[in-house]
Amino acid sequence: MIYEVFRQEREGQPLQHGGSLEAPNAAFAEAYAREFYGRRNESTTLWIIPRDAVAEVEEPYVADVFDRDYRRVDGYSIKVKLKEARERAGALAD
């Protein structure tokens, strides 16, 4: 069985895919993951996941059919409005 191995290099970092290995069962996979990704103390956390349990999301994005600029930075023109707001505030203070 193929197991995918995820490893964390240092505390606080995200777990990243390290590689994969073949093992008869989870006990073997655990031992082998430790050997392959920990024998030089290069990982602080290891996850093993049977490859069959991993599903790939086919289109890892939501199609931008209609404008969804409110989800993006370019959907907000702060600069111009801020300038105007400051000018008005200045005018009020005068």
Binding site: L21, E22, A23, F28, Y32, E35, R39
Partner: peptide
């Protein structure tokens, strides 16, 4: 895989 483990 076992080769690496047994060597350790």
């Amino acid at each position: 895989e076992e080769d690496v483990a047994f060597s350790s």
